[in-house]
């Protein structure tokens, strides 16, 4: 267990269901982005959200840690509803790491400085403690030699690995990924997916919005197919990719050129 990317929570008392979405709805004016989503994410599970563009995957992910407000419905984290109280919301956000499509590294901080930001400002770690933690995480994502680089001097794949390390520095219980490889050159996608795969192997609970069907197929425990703000099918990857039950899933996969 020394070589793991995450500290597993000592989880006897923690509930089995980490995130529960209960009838989550989101409207932008007349437009319905989420039309009542019900979903459970269990501890240690990797859940992949797939579906056509505009189907509401990112919106659901942002509702998970309160970056987006729901029109109605409820999201429970460890059995606690997401609150309107900003202090409680911040406490929940600290325990959910988030990785963005465009990395969103802080350009005025080095790779190391990016990773130290959360622990120092939010967790109150000393600079020394934060540095130790950041150096260990950089090593885990294979970027020890880039500690002093600014984001401008990192490739896309390297930036995304730093962004993953930045999220892990908060020692979260859950990691949320929003199309983490969509902005990457094909040759750097693999290095990011490898880091995510190791994270999954270490037992991290992960919710991943992705268009990488091979990754979903190999790594996911549970695949959720979205269309028009609704879940049209969910199940183990074997079911979704080899024996889809709905025409919406079949249409989506064949549209992507997926042939099993």
């Amino acid at each position: 267990m020394t070589d793991t990317l995450v500290k597993l929570p000592q989880g006897f008392a923690l509930p089995e269901v980490v995130i529960e979405y209960r009838d989550v709805r989101k409207q932008y004016g007349e437009f319905v982005a989420l039309a009542g989503v019900n979903l459970e994410v269990r501890r240690g599970q990797v859940v992949c959200l797939i579906g056509p563009s505009g189907s509401g995957k990112s919106t659901l992910l942002r509702c998970t840690n309160g970056l987006e407000t729901m029109t109605s419905g409820e999201v429970y984290f460890d059995g606690m509803p997401l609150s309107k109280d900003p202090r409680k919301t911040r406490l929940i956000r600290q325990r959910m790491g988030m990785v963005f499509q465009n990395f969103e590294l802080f350009p005025h901080k080095t790779a190391l400085g990016n990773i130290m930001m959360g622990p120092m400002t939010v967790l109150g770690l000393s600079e020394e403690q934060a540095r130790t933690r950041a150096e260990a995480l950089l090593a885990k994502v294979g970027l020890s030699d880039k500690a002093g680089n600014y984001p401008a001097n990192l490739s896309g794949g390297q930036q995304q690995r730093v962004a993953i390390a930045r999220a892990l520095a908060m020692e979260p219980e859950v990691m949320l990924f929003d199309e983490p490889t969509s902005a990457l050159d094909p040759e750097t996608i693999g290095e990011v997916l490898n880091v995510m795969k190791r994270l999954a192997d270490d037992g991290m609970t992960m919710v991943v919005v992705t268009h990488e069907m091979t990754f979903a197929r190999r790594v996911a425990d549970h695949v959720v197919v979205f269309a028009n703000g609704q879940i049209v099918e969910q199940g183990p990857p074997e079911q979704i990719f080899d024996a889809p039950k709905t025409t919406r899933t079949r249409d989506f996969l064949s549209h992507l050129g997926w042939d099993g």
């Binding site: 840690n65 970056l67 900003p86 911040r90 406490l91 956000r93 600290q94 959910m96 790491g97 988030m98 963005f100 465009n102 969103e104 590294l105 802080f106 930001m117 959360g118 400002t121 939010v122 930045r166 999220a167 908060m170």
Partner: peptide, 18 residues
């Protein structure tokens, strides 16, 4: 400054002032 930068800070649990 891109709104995504603010979102990245919020996702870490930082306050508006931070």
């Amino acid at each position: 400054v891109r709104p995504g930068q603010v979102r990245a800070g919020m996702a870490l649990g930082m306050t508006r002032a931070q």
